[in-house]
Design a protein around this nucleic acid. Structure first.
Length: 469
RNA sequence: GGGACCGUAGGGUAGCUUGGUCGAUCCUUUGGGCUUUGGGAGCCUGAGACUCCGGUUCAAAUCCGGGCGGUCCCA
């Protein structure tokens, strides 16, 4: 892919996903096809979170006083907040913020709701839009001023151990989610200087895009008791004492869609994982004047038979030549195309084409066709995931030479290196290489005897560095 | 945070340097008609644009300033 950025914009447009011409910087319009992808993606996500979270919905506006309560938190966002200052022509007594994230909207309510250890753990999530006044150049789905799809989960626990376990649970949930989408990731603990404002620590998922930059696609934060103390979230424990709660939160955004597009797509366009594709099968009828009715009838029957098995089917019966339809659906990434014309009816066969590898398969048009195609769709799901993971793993390199790192990153790799974990050496490494440390990947045993790539001291971690979005 | 570049139909462009020939080029898109239909068809006939505000000038798509919007690079 020569120019990823150009390609990405073109896919959003031609794939009928987003219109980025809305006249406000960083705010875009979801188009029907893209909105369906979003819908199926969210359905998967909700299914996972509904296991042990409850969905809620908080208001968009946050009073200034609440937003400003948590000092470190507000500092992390203050330059990015949109303010509502007027009601009509009347200036408001108190400015209202469009939520950049919802901690400060939700936690005052948590303080009201939580009385006793019986109320805990409390696990809520919501899927909303959030606003951040990005001053730098924005790009659809990746860096926007209105995050139109922001899933945020907020949990409250009685003990530190429970909150730490919750962080692990959330990571497992995200892994499962990204596995459904076939999106490969690295998980790391963000360095101190890059964690969520107000958090004790931040765990992050990063995906490697085709242009060699990593995209943060999910985060899980352990908030400790910082917010509990700020918002006075206390509960009466079993000993009858009032103590502060422990909290976590985690988030996903529009970027999950960006990663689906950016990781699976190719020169011809989108390649959608069947798990979120609006249509699993697109049927392309080949219509002549003669035999038109019979062909369409057969398409309709097939559609109903597939739908009875839970397969999403679209018949493209537009009055245009078939060649155009093939191209259109390649751009849109439909996993399987199924072609039926008069000749096929006569010979009792059909041709199906896989989008992921372009393979054309001739199948007999009888009662076996339903199961055969369903098998193929499942195989597509597995294949595109495997392919993505292979590419991903090939692009992770470990280096013990600081001077070699920029070269490896330029070639599109995420680079692992040994680090003593100290901020001064971390910052120095970022400065010397000109790239960003994603975080620590794992902790080293002392008997591994690795040295920090910068200081030469004993290394404590294997850490990751990359070119980031 | 710093810097560079850009803005002409829905999309992509020519024209801008040297203001007038612009009633604005070409491709794509799009309405109607004919003809076609197994990988982006063809022909006929229509439609569609100078980012906004201000300035310079007899005259601005073209020059100047600002706003808005976009792209890229560096931190």
């Amino acid at each position: 892919m020569e120019n990823f950025s150009e390609w990405f914009h073109e896919i959003l447009d031609k794939g009928d996903i987003m219109d980025s011409r809305y006249p406000i910087k960083g705010m875009n319009v979801w188009l029907p096809y893209g909105f369906k992808i979003r819908k199926y993606t969210l359905e998967l996500l909700k299914e996972l979170f509904d296991r042990d979270h409850d969905e809620v919905l908080f208001p968009l506006l946050i009073p200034e006083e609440e937003l400003a309560k948590e000092g470190i938190h507000v500092k992390g966002f203050e330059e990015e907040v949109y303010w509502v200052t007027h009601g009509g022509s009347k200036e408001l007594n108190e400015k209202l913020a469009l939520r950049p994230t919802s901690e400060t909207a939700i936690y005052p309510m948590f303080a009201l709701w939580i009385r006793s250890h019986i109320d805990l753990p409390m696990k809520y999530y919501q899927i909303v839009n959030t606003f951040r006044y990005e001053t730098k150049h924005t790009r659809p789905l990746i860096r926007v001023r209105e995050i139109s799809t922001f899933k945020e989960a907020h949990t409250v626990h009685a003990t530190k151990e429970e909150s730490e376990a919750q962080v692990e649970d959330a990571i497992e949930l995200y892994k499962e989610f990204f596995d459904y989408l076939g999106i490969p990731y690295v998980i790391s603990k963000r360095p101190e200087w890059d964690k969520f404002p107000g958090a004790d620590y931040t765990m992050a998922f990063d995906a490697l895009m085709k242009d060699g930059k990593t995209l943060q696609i999910g985060t899980v934060h352990n908030l400790g008791q910082t917010f509990a103390k700020t918002f006075d979230i206390t509960f009466e424990n079993e000993e009858g004492k009032h103590v502060y709660a422990y909290q976590t939160c985690c988030g996903l955004s529009d970027r999950i869609i960006a990663s689906i597009i950016g990781i699976h797509g190719d020169e011809k366009g989108l390649i959608l994982p069947p798990s979120v594709s609006p249509n699993h099968i697109t049927i392309i009828p080949i219509l002549f004047k003669e035999g038109k009715e019979e062909v369409l009838e057969k398409c309709q029957t097939l559609k109903e038979e597939f739908e009875a098995e839970g397969v999403r089917v679209h018949i493209d019966d537009r009055d245009i030549r078939p060649g155009k339809k093939f191209y259109d659906w390649e751009i849109k990434g439909t996993p399987v195309k199924l072609e039926i014309g008069p000749r096929d009816l006569k010979e009792n066969k059909t041709i199906i084409t896989r989008r992921d590898n372009g393979e054309k398969i001739e199948l007999p048009l009888d009662e076996t066709v339903i199961d055969s195609v369903i098998d193929i769709i499942e195989d597509v799901n597995v294949s595109i995931s495997n392919k993505a993971w292979e590419n991903h793993e090939d692009s992770i390199k470990i280096s013990e030479d600081l001077d070699e790192i920029p070269k490896l990153i330029k070639e599109g790799n995420i680079v692992g290196f040994y680090w003593n974990g100290k901020e001064d050496s971390g910052k120095a490494i970022e400065e010397e290489t000109d790239y960003d440390i994603l975080g620590t990947y794992n902790e080293l045993d002392s008997d591994e005897n690795k040295k920090c790539i910068y200081s030469g001291e004993d290394a404590k971690y294997l850490a990751l560095i990359a070119k980031t979005y």
